[in-house]
């Protein structure tokens, strides 16, 4: 574990419930994790795993029917659950910034991008108008937007998707946040632009020693950018570890299943092994381990009790009964012929 001084964000035993006409449903169930300075933590999961809701709760942006019922969120040692909305507004975008999946809708179409960036800076700092203007141009240059002086006069619809996502990142970075939260920021983008945005986030992270909390469902993106990985399923973290631990030596059948169900570009001959069934929705009440109905290794106890946490390595934890016996090791299928890169 990291030294507690380096801990930027610590989420402890967090539970989030949503009230609906059918009664409360638990979206996030008892999750604990850290993000340190200069570290990229990736939350991997499918729809309904609670990954996006976790992010929103950190930003205190949960919709009205969602509520944190248990646990704490510490940011730089302060408990954020005690903060008023006013204090929270200050922290948002100044200390913690968030970028969203869809750059098309996250910008206001009636204002120029220059105005929108200026606005976030003015909201949070006492800079003069001229200094602000220079800062805007600096930010746009930083995120790799060519000819920033002309761009600031443009409206969102005049920019391509990748450019808009860069603008979003510029806005997110405008006040030098300590933590950047990204909710599938590249899913809506083309692959060439995705790679640029990923590289950009990595560069900026190194430059400013930011913590990055990154949510995605794309295993290849995770491998590329993550330092540590949290695998979420059914509102719980089922496996946690460094990228090497989780990707090379997955210990949870779900993680293994995810890896085996994506085509690997480097090993095209490897057959896919899909996980049967589909991810549970929030109102499914599954006893025991949430994954057991889809798990090919499911044992009797899996449907009775939720597995306790087993420590594989100092940083590698997994919630699966298979670890109790220690019989199971991973089965990531290998192709016969490895891709011969040129």
């Amino acid at each position: 574990m990291q030294n507690s001084n380096e801990n930027l964000l610590r989420v402890e035993e967090l539970k989030i419930e949503f009230s609906s006409s059918k009664g409360p449903t638990r979206a996030v169930n008892d999750i604990t994790f850290n993000v340190s300075k200069g570290e990229t933590v990736c939350i991997v999961g499918e729809s309904g795993s609670g990954k996006s809701i976790t992010l929103l709760s950190i930003m205190k942006l949960l919709s009205k029917n969602g509520e944190i019922t248990n646990g704490n969120i510490h940011f730089q040692g302060n408990n954020m659950r005690n903060l008023s909305n006013k204090q929270m507004r200050k922290i948002r975008n100044q200390e913690i910034s968030m970028i969203f999946q869809d750059p098309m809708t996250a910008l206001n179409p009636v204002f120029t991008i220059g105005y929108q960036i200026t606005e976030t800076i003015l909201n949070h700092s006492g800079l003069s108008k001229k200094a602000t203007h220079e800062r805007v141009i600096e930010l746009l240059t930083l995120v790799g937007i060519p000819a920033p002086k002309q761009r600031i006069k443009q409206y969102p619809h005049e920019l391509s998707g990748g450019m808009r996502q860069r603008v979003m990142i510029a806005i997110a970075l405008s006040n030098n946040p300590k933590l950047l939260i990204a909710d599938e920021p590249t899913t809506a983008l083309d692959v060439t632009i995705q790679s640029q945005i990923l590289d950009l986030i990595q560069d900026l992270k190194e430059k400013f020693n930011m913590g990055v909390l990154f949510v995605t469902h794309d295993m290849s993106v995770v491998t590329e950018i993550a330092d540590r990985i949290l695998v979420m399923y059914g509102g719980k973290i089922v496996e946690e570890g460094t990228v090497e631990d989780v990707m090379v030596n997955p210990k949870h059948p779900y993680t293994e299943g995810l890896l085996n169900s994506v085509p690997d570009i480097n090993r095209p001959d490897r057959p896919l092994e899909p996980i049967p069934g589909s991810p549970p929705s929030l109102d499914d009440d599954i006893p025991g381990c949430h994954f057991h109905p889809r798990c090919k290794y499911a044992m009797e106890e899996c449907s009775i009790e939720y597995p306790s946490t087993f420590t594989i390595d100092s940083d590698h934890h997994v919630n699966c009964w298979l670890q109790k016996t220690g019989e199971w090791s991973h089965h990531v299928s290998e192709s016969e012929v490895l891709y011969d890169s040129q």
Partner: peptide, 11 residues
């Protein structure tokens, strides 16, 4: 589709 479901449909 979700990643795990995608592989089912491809197959």
């Amino acid at each position: 589709l979700d990643v795990s479901v995608q592989a089912q449909v491809i197959q």
